[in-house]
Amino acid sequence: MTSMAGKQPQLQSIDIQQLPLQQLNALVQQLEQEIELFGNSLNSLKLAQGKFVESQECLNKVGPENKEKDILVPLTSSMYVPGQLSDVENILIDIGTGYYVEMPVESGKDYFRRKVDYVSKQMEKIQPILQEKYRMKQVAVEILQSKMQLMQQQAASSKA
């Protein structure tokens, strides 16, 4: 039987059925940890995506129609100084690890578009894994519960 388990995926679920209670519990816990990990990653990706989208939208405001307009520049999150938008053609983008690049607005938009795409792709990779883990956890929990019930029934009948 066990030598065939690798060839027929159906037999794997039978293997879970036959696991002792302790191991089943450990399995559920492990799956829960994995779900948490992937969930956290997904959340961080969503956050990052939001930031990129926000920056991209901000760039829509940087154009010739807003040249020389008055703006308030934040020095801290609660203190602003007045200023004027003098350069509407170029922007400075943080591309990571301490490097900043000056580029025209259009390339900046392109940069953020690419970043959003990249993050979306990563999310698409994680989503199915997370769903699969959820499904596995559900199956494991169901088996665990049915086993517990069985044990309780056995204990009750042996007492009576």
Partner: peptide, 11 residues
């Protein structure tokens, strides 16, 4: 980037 692009490093 194009070769003429301005690159800055945060120090």
């Amino acid at each position: 980037l194009e070769t003429a692009a301005n690159v800055y490093k945060m120090i």
